[in-house]
Amino acid sequence: MTIIDKAALHILDTAGSSLLSAAELPLAGEAGEYLLAHIEKSRKSPDKKAGTFYDDSACRKELAAYLAGEVEFLAFSRTLAESFLRALSHAADVAPMMLFVLEAHEDERRELIVFLCRSHAGFSPAVIDTEGGLSAELSACASLLPSVSATMDEFAFVDLATFAVHVRAKRYTVDGNAIFVLPELVLECGQAPSAREALKKARETAKKVAEAYGGDAIETAAAVKSFVANELAEKDAVNPFEAGREVFRENPAMQADYEQAIKEAGFAAPVEMDKESILKKMRNHKLKTDTGIELVIPTDYFDNTEFVEFRRGEDGTISITLKQIQNIVDRG
Rank of each mutant, 00 (worst) to 15 (best):
P270V: 01
V271Y: 00
E272M: 04
E272D: 14
M273N: 02
M273P: 02
M273W: 04
D274F: 01
K275T: 11
K275Q: 12
K275A: 10
E276P: 01
E276N: 08
S277V: 05
S277G: 02
S277C: 05
I278F: 06
I278Q: 03
L279S: 12
K280R: 12
K280H: 09
K280G: 15
K280D: 09
M282Y: 01
R283T: 14
R283W: 02
N284H: 08
N284D: 09
N284K: 12
H285A: 12
H285P: 00
H285Q: 14
K288D: 12
T291F: 13
G292H: 10
I293Q: 14
I293A: 14
E294F: 04
E294C: 10
E294D: 11
E294Q: 14
E294G: 10
L295N: 03
L295H: 05
L295E: 02
V296W: 06
I297T: 05
I297N: 04
P298M: 12
D300T: 15
Y301M: 13
F302S: 03
F302E: 01
F302T: 01
D303W: 00
N304Y: 03
N304K: 08
N304I: 06
T305D: 13
T305Y: 01
E306Y: 11
E306R: 14
F307R: 04
V308Q: 08
V308M: 05
V308W: 05
V308R: 04
E309A: 12
E309S: 09
E309D: 13
F310Y: 06
R311M: 07
R311S: 10
R312E: 15
G313D: 06
E314I: 09
E314F: 10
E314R: 13
D315L: 01
G316E: 08
G316V: 08
G316F: 04
T317F: 05
S319N: 10
S319F: 09
I320V: 15
L322P: 02
L322A: 06
K323E: 03
I325W: 03
Q326S: 15
Q326W: 13
N327C: 13
N327E: 14
N327P: 01
I328F: 08
I328N: 09
I328Q: 11
I328M: 14
